[in-house]
Computed example of a mutant assay.
Amino acid sequence: MNIINKIAGKTLYGIARLISIVLDTIIALVETMVMIISSIARGFVVLIGMGGCLFLLLFAGPLGVALLLNPTVLLTIAFFIIAPILGTKFISYLKYIRYVTTEYLFDRASYLIDGKSYQFETFDEYKKKYKRMQDEKRRKRQEENRARQERKWEERFRQWNTHQNSQRSNWGYGSEQAYVNPTNEFKTKYEKSCNLLEVGYSEDQYQIKLAYRKKAKRYHPDINKSPDATEKFQQVNEAYEFLSDGNIERYKSIV
Results as ranks from 00 to 15, higher is better:
Phe80His: 07
Asp124Thr: 15
His163Asp: 10
Lys129Arg: 15
Leu105Gln: 01
Arg139Tyr: 10
His163Ser: 13
Thr88His: 06
Ser110Trp: 08
Tyr104Phe: 13
Gln134Val: 13
Phe106Gly: 01
Tyr93Thr: 09
Lys137Leu: 09
His163Cys: 05
Gln134Leu: 12
Met133Asn: 14
Arg156Gly: 01
Val100His: 00
Ile77Glu: 09
Tyr96Phe: 11
Asn161Ala: 12
Tyr104Asp: 02
Thr162His: 08
Met133Pro: 07
Phe120Leu: 12
Leu105Val: 02
Ala83Ile: 02
Arg132His: 11
Glu125His: 15
Thr76Trp: 08
Thr162Glu: 15
Thr122Leu: 13
Lys152Arg: 09
Glu144Thr: 05
Pro84Val: 03
Tyr99Ile: 06
Glu143Met: 04
Tyr104Trp: 14
Asp135Ser: 05
Arg156Ala: 05
Lys140Glu: 08
Thr162Phe: 02
Gln159Tyr: 13
Thr101Cys: 07
Ser92Glu: 12
Ala83Gln: 05
Lys140Asn: 07
Arg138Ser: 11
Lys131Pro: 04
Lys127Thr: 12
Lys128Phe: 11
Lys152Pro: 00
Gln119Asn: 07
Asp135Thr: 06
Gln142Thr: 11
Tyr96Leu: 07
Asn145Met: 08
Arg108Pro: 01
Trp153Gln: 06
Phe90Gly: 04
Glu125Asn: 11
Ala83Asn: 00
Lys129His: 15
Thr102Val: 15
Asp124Ser: 14
Ile85Val: 15
Thr76Gly: 15
Trp153Asn: 02
Arg98Gln: 13
Gln142Asn: 08
Ile113Ser: 08
Glu150His: 07
Gln119Ser: 14
Glu121Trp: 14
Asp124Gly: 15
Phe123His: 10
Trp160Asn: 00
Ser117Cys: 03
Ser92Pro: 00
Tyr104Val: 01
Ile77Ser: 06
Tyr99Pro: 00
Ile81Trp: 05
Phe90Val: 13
Ile85Ala: 03
Ala83Leu: 11
Ile85Trp: 09
Asp114Trp: 09
Lys140Trp: 03
Glu103Ile: 08
Ser117Arg: 11
Ile113Met: 10
Thr88Pro: 02
Phe90Lys: 07
Ala147Ile: 12
Lys131Cys: 07
Leu105His: 03
Gly87Cys: 00
Ile113Phe: 05
Ile97Gly: 02
Asp107Tyr: 09
Lys116His: 09
Leu112Phe: 05
Met133Phe: 08
Ile97Thr: 13
Lys116Leu: 13
Arg158Lys: 15
Val100Trp: 01
Gln142Met: 11
Ile77Cys: 09
Ser92Asp: 14
Ile81Pro: 05
Leu112Tyr: 03
Glu155Pro: 01
Tyr93Asn: 04
Ile91Tyr: 01
Lys128Ile: 15
Tyr130Ala: 01
Leu86His: 08
Thr76Tyr: 15
Tyr118His: 12
Gly115Trp: 06
Ile77Trp: 09
Asn161Trp: 04
Thr102Phe: 02
Arg139Ala: 11
Lys116Thr: 12
Tyr130Cys: 01
Met133Trp: 06
Ile81Ser: 09
Ala78His: 00
Ser92Ile: 09
Glu154Ile: 14
Tyr93Trp: 12
Tyr96His: 07
Lys152Asn: 07
Trp160Ser: 02
Glu150Ile: 02
Glu103Cys: 13
Asp114Val: 10
Gly115Glu: 03
Ile113Cys: 06
Ser110Val: 09
Glu144Asn: 10
Trp153Val: 04
Lys137Tyr: 06
Phe90Asp: 02
Phe90Gln: 05
Arg108Asn: 04
Gln142Phe: 07
